[in-house]
Protein backbone atom coordinates (compact mmCIF):
# COMPACT_ATOMS: atom_id res chain seq x y z
CA UNK A 1 0.00 0.00 0.00
CA UNK A 2 1.31 3.47 -0.80
CA UNK A 3 0.66 6.51 1.26
CA UNK A 4 -1.67 7.93 -1.40
CA UNK A 5 -3.72 4.75 -1.34
CA UNK A 6 -3.95 4.89 2.43
CA UNK A 7 -5.09 8.50 2.25
CA UNK A 8 -7.68 7.60 -0.37
CA UNK A 9 -9.01 4.76 1.81
CA UNK A 10 -9.35 7.04 4.83
CA UNK A 11 -11.03 9.76 2.74
CA UNK A 12 -13.46 7.21 1.31
CA UNK A 13 -14.37 5.87 4.74
CA UNK A 14 -14.62 9.22 6.57
CA UNK A 15 -15.47 11.87 4.00
CA UNK A 16 -16.97 14.08 6.70
CA UNK A 17 -14.14 13.75 9.24
CA UNK A 18 -11.30 15.01 7.09
CA UNK A 19 -10.99 18.78 6.96
CA UNK A 20 -8.43 18.82 4.19
CA UNK A 21 -5.69 16.83 2.56
CA UNK A 22 -2.35 18.36 3.39
CA UNK A 23 -0.94 17.40 0.03
CA UNK A 24 -3.18 19.86 -1.73
CA UNK A 25 -1.52 22.88 -0.25
CA UNK A 26 1.91 24.18 -1.11
CA UNK A 27 3.36 22.98 2.19
CA UNK A 28 6.58 21.08 2.08
CA UNK A 29 7.23 17.98 4.12
CA UNK A 30 5.23 14.84 4.66
CA UNK A 31 1.74 14.61 3.20
CA UNK A 32 -0.84 14.62 5.93
CA UNK A 33 -4.55 14.63 6.56
CA UNK A 34 -6.21 17.19 8.79
CA UNK A 35 -8.87 15.49 10.87
CA UNK A 36 -11.73 17.03 12.83
CA UNK A 37 -10.93 16.86 16.54
CA UNK A 38 -14.20 15.17 17.48
CA UNK A 39 -13.74 12.41 14.88
CA UNK A 40 -10.08 11.65 15.48
CA UNK A 41 -10.68 8.76 17.81
CA UNK A 42 -13.02 7.06 15.34
CA UNK A 43 -10.56 7.47 12.47
CA UNK A 44 -7.62 6.11 14.44
CA UNK A 45 -9.68 3.25 15.82
CA UNK A 46 -10.78 2.24 12.36
CA UNK A 47 -7.23 2.53 11.01
CA UNK A 48 -5.99 0.30 13.75
CA UNK A 49 -8.72 -2.31 13.65
CA UNK A 50 -9.73 -2.54 10.01
CA UNK A 51 -8.20 -5.71 8.55
CA UNK A 52 -7.30 -3.87 5.36
CA UNK A 53 -5.47 -1.05 7.14
CA UNK A 54 -3.75 -2.57 10.17
CA UNK A 55 -1.97 0.48 11.55
CA UNK A 56 -0.49 -1.33 14.52
CA UNK A 57 2.08 1.19 15.62
CA UNK A 58 1.87 4.71 16.89
CA UNK A 59 5.21 6.01 15.76
CA UNK A 60 4.99 9.44 17.24
CA UNK A 61 2.51 11.83 18.79
CA UNK A 62 3.57 15.44 18.92
CA UNK A 63 2.09 18.73 19.92
CA UNK A 64 2.85 21.71 17.71
CA UNK A 65 2.23 25.43 18.00
CA UNK A 66 1.72 26.82 14.52
CA UNK A 67 1.49 30.36 15.78
CA UNK A 68 -2.27 30.76 15.36
CA UNK A 69 -3.51 27.30 16.19
CA UNK A 70 -2.12 24.43 18.16
CA UNK A 71 -2.05 20.99 16.67
CA UNK A 72 -1.70 17.41 17.75
CA UNK A 73 0.10 15.35 15.12
CA UNK A 74 -0.05 11.58 14.86
CA UNK A 75 2.26 9.37 12.84
CA UNK A 76 0.78 5.92 12.46
CA UNK A 77 2.61 2.98 10.99
CA UNK A 78 1.33 -0.15 9.39
CA UNK A 79 4.03 -2.78 9.44
CA UNK A 80 1.80 -5.16 7.54
CA UNK A 81 1.24 -2.74 4.66
CA UNK A 82 4.55 -0.93 5.03
CA UNK A 83 3.08 2.53 5.07
CA UNK A 84 3.10 5.55 7.35
CA UNK A 85 0.27 8.03 7.60
CA UNK A 86 0.35 11.39 9.27
CA UNK A 87 -2.81 12.80 10.81
CA UNK A 88 -3.12 16.27 12.17
CA UNK A 89 -5.77 17.76 14.43
CA UNK A 90 -5.91 21.52 14.53
CA UNK A 91 -7.03 22.90 17.86
CA UNK A 92 -8.05 26.41 18.84
CA UNK A 93 -5.54 28.07 21.17
CA UNK A 94 -8.24 28.99 23.70
CA UNK A 95 -9.55 25.49 24.23
CA UNK A 96 -7.29 22.83 22.76
CA UNK A 97 -9.07 19.60 23.45
CA UNK A 98 -9.03 16.26 21.69
CA UNK A 99 -9.87 12.70 22.64
CA UNK A 100 -7.04 10.62 24.02
CA UNK A 101 -5.99 7.53 22.08
CA UNK A 102 -4.33 5.81 25.02
CA UNK A 103 -7.05 3.15 24.92
CA UNK A 104 -5.82 2.19 21.44
CA UNK A 105 -2.07 2.70 21.79
CA UNK A 106 -0.31 2.45 25.14
CA UNK A 107 2.54 4.46 23.65
CA UNK A 108 0.27 7.50 23.48
CA UNK A 109 0.22 7.80 27.26
CA UNK A 110 3.50 9.63 27.88
CA UNK A 111 3.39 11.41 24.53
CA UNK A 112 0.05 12.96 25.38
CA UNK A 113 1.30 13.93 28.80
CA UNK A 114 4.26 15.63 27.19
CA UNK A 115 2.07 17.56 24.74
CA UNK A 116 -0.11 18.53 27.68
CA UNK A 117 2.90 19.59 29.73
CA UNK A 118 4.59 21.71 27.09
CA UNK A 119 1.66 22.97 25.01
CA UNK A 120 -1.38 22.62 27.21
CA UNK A 121 -3.35 20.36 24.92
CA UNK A 122 -6.01 18.52 26.88
CA UNK A 123 -6.53 14.89 25.96
CA UNK A 124 -9.93 13.90 27.23
CA UNK A 125 -10.11 10.37 28.53
CA UNK A 126 -6.41 10.14 29.36
CA UNK A 127 -6.00 8.04 32.52
CA UNK A 128 -3.59 10.44 34.25
CA UNK A 129 -3.08 13.73 32.52
CA UNK A 130 -0.44 15.48 34.65
CA UNK A 131 2.83 17.18 33.80
CA UNK A 132 5.59 14.80 32.87
CA UNK A 133 8.73 16.94 32.41
CA UNK A 134 8.24 20.27 34.12
CA UNK A 135 7.77 20.53 37.85
CA UNK A 136 4.25 19.91 39.07
CA UNK A 137 3.67 23.53 40.03
CA UNK A 138 5.14 25.02 36.85
CA UNK A 139 3.12 27.91 35.45
CA UNK A 140 2.25 28.04 31.76
CA UNK A 141 3.13 25.89 28.79
CA UNK A 142 6.76 26.46 27.79
CA UNK A 143 6.65 25.48 24.13
CA UNK A 144 3.83 27.85 23.23
CA UNK A 145 5.04 30.74 21.13
CA UNK A 146 3.51 33.29 23.50
CA UNK A 147 5.02 31.74 26.62
CA UNK A 148 6.52 34.23 29.06
CA UNK A 149 9.56 33.04 31.00
CA UNK A 150 9.12 33.06 34.75
CA UNK A 151 11.13 35.76 36.52
CA UNK A 152 11.93 33.41 39.33
CA UNK A 153 11.03 29.98 40.51
CA UNK A 154 11.03 29.05 44.19
CA UNK A 155 13.44 31.81 45.10
CA UNK A 156 15.86 31.05 42.26
CA UNK A 157 16.20 33.99 39.91
CA UNK A 158 15.63 33.16 36.28
CA UNK A 159 16.22 36.46 34.49
CA UNK A 160 19.84 37.41 34.96
Amino acid sequence: MTRAEAHAAILAKFPDAIVRDGREGKEAGDPYLVVKAERLHDVVKWMKEDPGMRFEVLQCLSGVDYGKDLASVYHLDSWTNKVTVCLRVELPREKPEVASITDLYGAADWHEREAYDLLGITYTGHPKLVRILCAEDWVGYPLRKDYVFPKEYHGIKNDL
Partner: peptide, 16 residues
Protein backbone atom coordinates in the same frame (compact mmCIF):
# COMPACT_ATOMS: atom_id res chain seq x y z
CA UNK B 1 19.35 29.64 53.07
CA UNK B 2 16.48 30.96 50.97
CA UNK B 3 17.19 29.78 47.49
CA UNK B 4 16.02 26.50 46.14
CA UNK B 5 14.21 25.48 49.27
CA UNK B 6 11.28 24.71 47.09
CA UNK B 7 8.93 22.39 48.63
CA UNK B 8 9.58 19.08 47.02
CA UNK B 9 6.22 17.60 46.20
CA UNK B 10 5.01 15.46 49.02
CA UNK B 11 4.88 11.71 48.47
CA UNK B 12 1.65 10.76 46.83
CA UNK B 13 1.38 13.95 44.80
CA UNK B 14 0.15 13.05 41.33
CA UNK B 15 2.94 12.88 38.82
CA UNK B 16 5.67 12.77 41.40
Amino acid sequence: KGAGNAAMPAPGTPGR
